[in-house]
Design a protein around this nucleic acid. Structure first.
Length: 469
DNA sequence: CTATGGCACGGATT
DNA sequence: AATCCGTGCCATAG
């Protein structure tokens, strides 16, 4: 039914469908490459710059007010606000379109708002002069929230004494993503540790392993670490756990992978999300704003002048150009199709998983891709493609793979973890299964065991009793 | 006998 | 069509 409508509305070839499918499965970064190469090879395509929001620099299609920071409009609807957001952060840094040669960590969309966010927190406490300094420092952060220049450079640039720069840096480091503006991950950890130490007891080993064992720590070579300090593995264990649980060497980055067992290789860390969810106007009670990133400097369209010219001319080139036109319009349609699908998908997903987004893992509703495909009237595989390989940034700056929205067991695992954390005596898997059952999660005993393993929790007889946090 | 981990089957996902 | 994930069944450890 909808399928028919869908196809008759767009009487395209199978090529169209195929291309849309391909585009759908691309991440924003890959999409950028696609668009760039298409743009370069096809003269009929052009990019039109959009108007920018004066405050947040987002590009706004049409004349709509900025959906992210416009205060008054947009009623308090419960529905999330989903829109396509062209972001050219990737380009402005390098100046040119080819940014391939830029180092990985030059910039990222996720840190665009960070400087402003931090500055807003600390600005009231700063003098005019320091504010300028802070602003400068904050524009030299990489995507991890670490400084890309040295304090010395900055001091020289401003002709300020180094001590002054250091003072401002210290203030920045204590602002919200604690440790932001540090020069190294190590420094960030130390700052975080200091701040935590004010309020809570911290393992005395923690400071030492960060200070002298940073190298080994980051490579998770704990036994080496123990040897370095001439203590047993058991003795440094609490400190290591403390550090990995509570500290984050990349202040702007959501999570530091999962620091569990020494499970061999590096854990994947995400940056440059494909989708960003935030609160409208940073208001925690406001509606959610969902940006689907289009990593280009505007909107793509068929160049009307080119079209005109082709119709007018009778060159022998005319046939070539006609095919260019054809291809261009096809490409644009595909992009639009992609965006449309993403938009509808996100609208629904965010609306359903709002609790999860706001309150955390426990509230994830186990939904399936299949149910969405029915709801949106598209094929299952369409949803799969749209979800696969994409990452999404939550309002709390965590970046998670989009597939997490469809994790069938995350909520159960989280609750399970809580039970085990709060248990008074080590509960067996069977008991845990029963406990979960009572709370509305019906899982087999065998599955409890699997989840435990997934979370790196030891079996009951190896856990020590009465672990209260 | 109880608690767990290994293997394999069926449905969901890709 | 190939792969992943939750579960049931069974062997093994305590």
């Amino acid at each position: 039914m909808f399928q028919h409508h869908f196809q008759s509305q767009r009487p395209q070839t199978t090529a169209h469908l195929a291309q849309t499918m391909t585009l759908l499965s691309l991440t924003s970064d890959e999409l950028r490459q696609q668009i760039e190469s298409e743009l370069a090879s096809n003269p009929a395509l052009e990019m039109v710059e959009e108007r920018r929001c004066p405050t947040c620099r987002r590009m706004l299609p049409g004349k709509s007010p900025c959906p992210v920071c416009s205060q008054p409009t947009l009623a308090q609807s419960d529905e999330p606000l989903v829109f396509i957001s062209p972001r050219d952060d990737y380009f402005t840094v390098g100046g040119a379109l080819g940014t391939e040669d830029l180092p990985e960590d030059t910039f990222s969309s996720s840190c665009e708002e960070l400087p402003e966010y931090v500055l807003r927190q600390i600005a009231p406490d700063l003098s005019q002069e320091d504010r300028r300094l802070a602003a400068y420092l904050l524009t030299h952060l990489n995507e991890d929230g670490l400084l890309t220049t040295t304090l010395f450079e900055v001091a020289r640039y401003f002709h300020f004494p180094l001590s002054q720069v250091e003072r401002v840096q210290r203030i920045i480091q204590r602002a919200d993503p604690i440790g932001v503006g540090s020069c190294t991950p190590q420094e960030a950890l130390l700052v975080q540790l200091d701040i935590l130490a004010d309020a809570n007891p911290v393992p005395e080993m923690a400071r030492r392993i960060i200070l002298d064992g940073m190298d080994l720590l980051s490579r998770r070579q704990y036994s080496e670490l123990a040897r370095l300090f001439k203590v047993s593995l058991r003795q440094i264990q609490p400190a290591v756990k403390f550090v990995s649980d509570n500290l984050n060497p990349f202040p702007a980055r959501s999570h530091w992978g999962d620091v569990r067992q020494p499970t061999a290789a590096n854990v994947e860390v995400y940056h440059r999300p494909d989708i960003i969810i935030s609160f409208q106007n940073m208001n925690e009670n406001g509606p959610l704003v969902v940006e689907i990133i289009m990593p280009v400097a505007g909107t793509l369209r068929v160049n009307p002048l080119f079209k005109e010219a082709v119709h007018g001319s009778s060159d022998e080139k005319r046939e070539d150009w006609k095919s260019d036109l054809e291809r261009a319009s096809l490409f644009v349609k595909c992009i639009q199709q992609r965006n449309h699908t993403m938009q509808r998908l996100l609208q629904r997903v965010v609306s359903i998983q709002k609790e999860f987004i706001l309150r955390g893992d426990k509230h994830l509703k186990p939904i399936t891709r299949a149910s969405f495909s029915r709801e949106l009237g598209v094929h299952e595989s369409t949803i799969s493609r749209a979800v696969a390989n994409k990452t999404i940034q939550l309002p709390n700056r965590k970046i998670i793979p989009m597939s997490e929205f469809f994790d069938r067991s995350l909520n159960v695992r989280t609750v399970l973890k809580e039970f085990i954390e709060h248990e008074l005596r080590p509960l067996s898997d069977t008991e845990l299964a029963g406990l979960l059952e009572k709370n509305g999660f019906s899982v087999a005993r065998r599955t409890v065991a699997k989840y435990r393993a997934m979370e790196g929790i030891l079996p009951a007889h190896l856990r020590q009793a009465g672990a209260a946090t």
